[in-house]
Amino acid sequence: MTHRLAAYNFGIFTQRAEHSANEGWRQRHDPLMELVETAPGFIARSGYEGEPGPKSWGKQSVPRFTK
């Protein structure tokens, strides 16, 4: 069996992205992505436009949730 892995990671912040309330997410993001990239079946991941790291695959889309 061939394994294939796609991962989509996003955060829905209650404050601006750079706010200290989001520090935990920022601290976990890169180590988590490093684990994903070493998983069996990993193909690639998209980066974020204008940020260092992998090239963006296009316009970012964030799921919307209803309460």
Rank of each mutant, 00 (worst) to 15 (best):
E23T: 10
S20Q: 04
L35H: 14
L5T: 06
H3D: 07
G11H: 06
K67A: 13
F65T: 07
E37H: 08
Y8T: 05
E37P: 05
A7R: 09
S46G: 09
L5W: 00
L5H: 00
R16Y: 03
F65L: 12
G41E: 04
M33L: 12
N22W: 03
S61M: 14
W57M: 14
T14H: 07
A21W: 02
E34Y: 04
P40M: 05
G47L: 10
A6Q: 04
D30N: 11
A39L: 12
W57C: 13
I43S: 13
G41Q: 05
Q27Y: 08
L35E: 06
V36T: 07
Y8D: 11
W57P: 02
K67S: 13
P54W: 05
F13M: 08
P52M: 03
P52T: 11
W25M: 12
Q15N: 04
A44E: 15
E37I: 06
M33F: 01
R28I: 01
S56I: 00
S56R: 13
R4L: 01
S46H: 08
R4P: 00
P63F: 13
G24E: 00
P31N: 01
E51P: 02
M1E: 04
R4A: 09
L35W: 01
F65S: 05
R4I: 00
A6C: 10
G41C: 01
R4C: 00
P31Y: 08
S56C: 05
A7K: 00
Q27D: 03
Q60R: 15
T66W: 10
R45A: 03
D30W: 08
A21L: 07
P31F: 09
L5N: 01
K67T: 07
G11S: 09
E37C: 11
Q15D: 12
S46Q: 10
G24Q: 00
R4V: 07
S20C: 10
R28A: 15
N22H: 02
G24C: 01
H3T: 07
E37V: 02
A39S: 15
P40G: 01
E18T: 10
R28H: 06
M33S: 07
K55R: 14
H3W: 03
R26M: 02
D30S: 02
K67L: 12
S46F: 08
E49L: 15
F13R: 03
H3C: 08
S46K: 09
T66L: 09
K67C: 07
P54T: 13
I43F: 08
L32Q: 05
P52L: 06
Q27G: 03
S20G: 06
G11V: 07
G11F: 04
E51G: 02
R28P: 00
V36N: 09
F10V: 12
T14M: 04
S56F: 03
M1T: 06
W57K: 11
L5G: 05
P54K: 14
Q15V: 08
R16V: 07
Q27P: 01
W57A: 15
M1Q: 06
Q27L: 07
G47F: 15
P54C: 05
V36L: 06
R45F: 07
H29T: 10
T66P: 04
N9S: 10
F65Q: 05
A44G: 11
L32D: 09
A7I: 03
G58R: 11
K67Y: 14
P63K: 12
T14K: 05
S56T: 15
G24L: 05
K55N: 14
W57D: 14
P31H: 03
R64L: 13
K67W: 13
L5C: 00
